[in-house]
Design a protein around this nucleic acid. Structure first.
Lengths: 207, 207
DNA sequence: TGCAAACTTGCAGTGACTGCAAAACAATCC
DNA sequence: GGATTGTTTTGCAGTCACTGCAAGTTTGCA
């Protein structure tokens, strides 16, 4: 009884992880991030506190739902683009694809997260602190495409710009979600692409 | 006994703050950030643990030496540039000036911090989490110069780019400090200015 | 000198997080 | 089916960051 895809064990793990993530976000949105203890979250997900920490290294991580497979997945996407796509575009499109997928799979969670992040913008920054290895993966993928040596700034700078774009976009989206998050990230990355030296033209409809 | 400049009280406060910052950095560099307790830091600086937390909201903040006046100071600089300097340049030059000053005042501290940040790059990211209000200040200053409404992305994106540039630069500097930190930040900001859409030319000498 | 405001301290408490060893459980082999 | 083995869950004891509060101490000022 073991399809290569998913054993009972794997399924249970995924469900537990999801339950913990969901419980964290729901409770935090409901009564404020720091009026929720890990004990309550664990209880809500029907596991012990110790188990919570087997799945997430910290309460912060659970709130964001840090997915350890996201990094590798995006890196793969970057490398999968045809040769004639620029490193910048490969990166940009990969990020956008990931965001689109993520929102399609868990839009409701993100709407709740938005509530929390509006109260505590710092949590979004903190969330990125734990993703140093993922950033390294992405930087390597970009570097490979660009044919640059390990030590070059460009890949790391591009990845850092991605984080910044995402942060900015979420912040804006939290204030006004009439525009899709993906759009906002795309817009921000677009500005990074063309350069910030000149103030972009301010057209009326938008921000 | 009260020159408008500094009272006894003010001087004592500055000294205590500096002692705590210094103790944190020194001990962390010596035996690793998380093998140092706040209790030890406080003892080293000859104050109580409670006093430590009167000065810094967290151990992280003490390590970075988060200066509550840095934000306002940079914002002032940005606004002080003549009209014909672009918002981007005003921002860039203000950041570089701040970094230069900081390094001149506490180069030794930064050399020790470098050691710590090499082991724990996440601490640098976390450090920025606590500076949300400062970022807001800078964004407002940039927005004012650019004549943009509160809601526009540009100012926030530029400031976020600055953080990213700083992060990248410190990381590089930690690996090889043969180039001044200011140079590296300047280089990174330069790339943000001209745009990341194209891979920059890779000239031999450098990175 | 004496009062008021600012700063420091101790204390008691909360809650995140860790290591360890035992129990519960799922996959595998006979 | 039942014994075996590897994985996951759990409880427990402990450490440490951080907070509020209510004294104590120091500084600024009249």
């Amino acid at each position: 009884m073991n399809q290569p895809g998913e054993s009972l064990r794997d399924r249970k793990k995924r469900r537990t992880r999801a339950a913990l993530e969901r419980a964290t976000v729901r409770l935090a949105a409901e009564r404020g991030y720091d009026h929720v203890t890990v004990e309550e979250i664990a209880a809500e997900a029907d596991v012990s506190v110790r188990t919570f920490f087997n799945y997430f290294a910290s309460k912060d991580e659970a709130l964001i739902g840090a997915d350890p497979e996201a990094g590798p997945r995006i890196a793969e996407r970057i490398l999968a683009f045809p040769e004639d796509v620029s490193p910048f575009d490969a990166y940009r499109l990969s990020i956008l694809a990931e965001i689109t997928d993520e929102l399609n799979n868990a839009r409701d969670l993100w709407l709740l997260r938005k509530e929390v992040l509006m109260q505590r913008p710092d949590l979004l920054v903190r969330a990125f602190a734990n993703s140093a290895e993922s950033e390294q993966l992405l930087a390597n993928a970009v570097g490979q495409r660009a044919g640059l040596p390990e030590s070059h700034v460009y890949p790391r700078l591009l990845v850092a710009a991605g984080s910044a774009a995402f942060r900015c976009a979420v912040t804006r989206w939290a204030l006004d979600d009439s525009v899709a998050l993906g759009e906002l990230v795309g817009e921000a990355l677009g500005l990074f692409g063309t350069g910030l030296a000149h103030v972009p033209h301010h057209h009326e409809g938008g921000s």
